[in-house]
């Protein structure tokens, strides 16, 4: 029998990694979940999947992260994965302005296929390539403000900002969800009880037991 991989957690959030091909989505994922960076990484075909749990405001939050192929035509397959996602990291490469220009198209993609209240964070990856910087931080920041997105610059290579990016988006999702639940509680005088877990679609289920 295989080892059980599910540990105890309070919340399970589904997050997608999107953005042009070659911006470093897969390495952001491996840096966050396994603290690994692979210089010899391969193009992602279809979707890949990984998980990691973090602590936020005293709760254990498990992130279920879907890494998607970046080429535009793959959206025919990958857009199905936006469904049920409560967060999206929209990644561009700070050394290639073209990948930032496409951010707007990715936002449209999210508007068309994802839940309306999905939390989106704009991520300028490869911040270690300072000498090749083609997208200025101010430019990206004002774009993010304009579109109501969170924003961070990261480097999957030297780890800068990676944990912070995931920590921030997951905490943000958690806060939004608690606020929403609180509102629901007030409305229904009921809501989610202790020992239950909110899943991606807002349904509640029994809390997972500890590792056997």
């Amino acid at each position: 029998m295989a080892t059980r991989v599910d540990e105890e957690y309070d919340y399970l959030f589904k997050v997608v990694l999107i953005g042009d091909s070659g911006v470093g989505k897969s390495n952001l994922l491996s840096r966050f979940t396994r603290n690994e960076f692979n210089l010899e990484s391969k193009s992602t075909i279809g979707v890949e999947f990984a998980t990691k749990s973090i602590q936020a405001e005293g709760k254990t939050i498990k992130a279920q992260i879907w890494d998607t192929a970046g080429q535009e035509r793959y959206r025919a397959i990958t857009s199905a994965y936006y469904r049920g996602a409560v967060g999206a990291l929209l990644v561009y490469d700070i050394s290639k302005h073209g990948t930032f220009d496409n951010v707007e198209r990715w936002l449209k993609e999210l508007r068309d296929h994802a839940e309306a209240n999905i939390v989106v964070m704009l991520v300028g990856n490869k911040s270690d390539l300072k000498q090749f910087k083609a997208v200025e931080t101010d430019e990206a920041m004002s774009f993010a403000e304009q579109h109501n997105l969170a924003f961070i610059e990261t480097s999957a290579l030297d780890s800068t900002g990676v944990d912070t990016a995931f920590q921030r988006i997951l905490t943000e999702i958690y806060r939004l969800m608690s606020r929403r639940n609180l509102a629901a509680d007030e409305a229904q005088a009921g809501g989610i009880k202790a020992g239950q877990t909110i899943d991606l679609n807002g349904n509640s289920k029994d809390k997972k037991g500890g590792c056997c």
Binding site: S21, G22, L39, K42, S43, E72
Partner: peptide, 22 residues
């Protein structure tokens, strides 16, 4: 441009562990 960029980005991400393409 789009096609060219995608090809170029994939060249060193194709069998990066093969002696011919590493």
């Amino acid at each position: 441009q789009d096609i060219r960029d995608t090809i170029l980005r994939d060249i060193n991400r194709t069998f990066p562990r093969h002696a011919m393409f590493a």
